[in-house]
């Protein structure tokens, strides 16, 4: 690995962490316009954008090309490495198979292609699922790669997601490393006793681990809760830091879904 020196500038005026926080598995640290936008603004923009894409008629091939281009522009602005984004998009593969098989089973009329008889409607549907799914997964990855989990949770609370859900989610992210470490210690313990799971006959052992994991997690929850109560927790968490959201942030972020909305409307009118 080569370290690029320009990335290792100490930013003393604007002190912030450069490490990965909890739950930031997909997060890629950069200094960009996209990273700097408040999390809830980005999330709303991404969701509205995806709905515009989903609402677009499948025959508007050009519109989908523009949407994909727009996502790539955002990826570029966010300074994310393209190979990384592409690699993470492989998560979509099972649905690619679902879509690819469709033209073979679709209804009449059929078209001949390379000696295969394919359903025209099936081809369009397959294209629609692939195009929308691909743009969707690229958008999700861009959102996850530019947003810290902590900021996301804080941001979601400010746009009306119930406090209790946000608290559950933050406990989940905070303790996910602890509990998955518990799980891997159990795995090491099992394997150092000569156990290897090869078939259904071993499910009992694995389920015992799952049971033990539940008891450990639940008891940890009790301990955490008691520790919090003794420090004055009364069911709400007070944030000392409230992110400031300006109208400009909203305008910047909503530019993407607004452009997409106009393309969607044009696509419906011209088809």
């Amino acid at each position: 690995m080569k370290l690029s020196p320009e990335r290792v500038v100490l930013d003393t005026n604007n002190a912030h962490e450069h490490g990965h926080g909890v739950g930031d598995h997909l997060y890629v640290h950069r200094h960009s316009l996209v990273h700097d936008l408040p999390a809830q603004v980005k999330t709303v923009a991404a969701i509205v954008f995806i709905f515009m894409v989903v609402l677009t008629p499948v025959h508007a091939v050009g519109a989908f090309a523009v949407y994909l281009g727009l996502v790539f522009v955002v990826v570029k602005i966010a300074d994310l490495p393209f190979p990384l984004v592409l690699r993470r998009m492989l998560i979509e593969i099972p649905f690619v198979l679902f879509a690819v098989l469709m033209p073979f089973f679709g209804p009449e009329p059929r078209v001949e292609f390379l000696g295969l008889s394919l359903s025209q409607e099936g081809l369009w549907s397959a294209f629609g699922i692939l195009a929308k799914g691909t743009i969707g997964v690229a958008t999700s990855i861009t959102l996850a790669a530019t947003t810290r989990a902590r900021d996301l949770l804080q941001g979601l609370e400010t746009i009306g997601v119930p406090d209790l859900l946000v608290q559950i989610a933050s406990f989940m992210l905070r303790y996910s490393a602890v509990v998955t470490d518990d799980l891997s210690r159990m795995k090491v313990a099992r394997e150092s006793r000569g156990f290897s799971a090869t078939g259904i006959k071993h499910w009992k052992v694995l389920a015992n681990s799952a049971g033990a994991l539940f008891i450990r997690s639940y008891e940890r929850g009790e301990r955490v809760h008691l520790a919090m109560l003794s420090r004055g927790y009364n069911g709400t968490i007070i944030d000392l830091y409230k992110p400031v959201v300006t109208k400009k942030d909203w305008r910047t972020a909503m530019a993407l879904p607004i452009v997409a909305a106009s393309i969607m409307v044009i696509a419906w009118i011209t088809l």
Binding site: L164, F171, M172, S176, V178, V179, S217, G221
Partner: peptide, 11 residues
């Protein structure tokens, strides 16, 4: 609810 449910979510 919150700490316990959070840990159940992790589970």
């Amino acid at each position: 609810t919150a700490p316990m449910a959070g840990l159940v979510a992790v589970f």
